[in-house]
Amino acid sequence: MTKTQEIIIRSLHRIEELEEVRKLECNIWGDTDSIPSHQTITAVKNGGLVLGAYCKDQLIGFQYSFPGFNGKSAYLCSHILGIDEQFRNKGIGEKLKLAQREEAIKLGYSLITWTYDPLESINGYLNIGKLGGVCSTYIANCYGEMEDLLNSGVPSDRFLVEWHIGKKETTDSRGRGIALDLVLVMENSLIQWDTIEKGLPVPSFTLGLPEPECDTAFVAIPKDFRTIRATNIQAANEWRMKSRDVFSDLFQQGWQVTDFIKDSTTEIPVQFYVLTKK
């Protein structure tokens, strides 16, 4: 994709469009568990939302949401977002999320929720650092043992993100990364790490939980978890279990994830979640 190629995002309503979405989903995750178009069109007709991202009339990304209800209020449950492999890391996911926010507000929603793998740093940076989502719920093995192309071999743990789209401070994509001393962050990360082959990080030990008077906590995750999972499944599972324990303990003590530190320093193989007390 070149700079001159414009990405168009629009809501999808026709069964033919939604069948294109299903086929793209199959290309990304495999065809064993794709969402049938009769399900997505039913959701669209009943408070749900499907967005398509197009480049030169080619569908290259999508986002699917359906209504949720917690017994007190309705919200939009953002279920799946996918980008064609050739168009990833070009900001299309962010464009889809911002369009989702606009359409959700039109439909009357003030909250969007979704889950994602907390070890996927690209998603963490987008969901927390740029969009302004927060998280205080950790779901261990959320979807059970997944055998698709992107998730096999590691428990499907997930963060549950809350995106309060009615609040101004969480509705512009300005990036909220805070200015901190990186050395201080590294030293105080609750997960410490060593580097192994190809410079990949593996968790070594964890620090104790913050003292009651502390107001900020940091947790390291790998910059490139997918490469770790593809080349060293043991290290991938060590990251999964260490981070599961740390985040679960923090959330139980009233902490929530509120920011993300993305560092581009090549020799530092991790990035960091920032947590604050509720």
Rank of each mutant, 00 (worst) to 15 (best):
P212F: 08
E213Q: 08
E213S: 06
T216I: 15
T216A: 04
T216S: 04
T216M: 13
A217H: 08
A217D: 10
F218W: 11
F218Y: 14
A220W: 06
A220R: 06
A220M: 10
A220E: 05
I221N: 00
I221K: 02
P222I: 00
K223D: 09
K223R: 09
D224A: 09
F225P: 14
F225Q: 03
R226Q: 11
T227P: 03
T227S: 07
R229L: 10
R229M: 11
A230M: 13
T231G: 05
T231Y: 12
Q234L: 15
Q234F: 15
Q234A: 15
A235L: 06
A236S: 02
N237H: 12
W239I: 11
W239Q: 06
M241D: 11
M241Q: 09
M241L: 13
S243E: 07
R244I: 00
R244M: 05
V246S: 05
F247D: 00
S248M: 07
S248K: 05
L250H: 02
L250M: 15
F251H: 07
F251V: 01
Q252C: 12
Q253G: 12
Q253K: 12
Q253Y: 11
G254K: 01
G254N: 03
W255V: 02
Q256F: 05
Q256W: 06
V257L: 05
V257K: 04
F260H: 04
F260P: 06
F260Y: 13
I261E: 02
D263H: 08
S264Q: 07
T265K: 11
T266Q: 10
T266C: 06
E267A: 13
E267S: 12
I268A: 05
Q271K: 07
Q271N: 15
F272A: 08
F272E: 12
Y273T: 13
V274D: 02
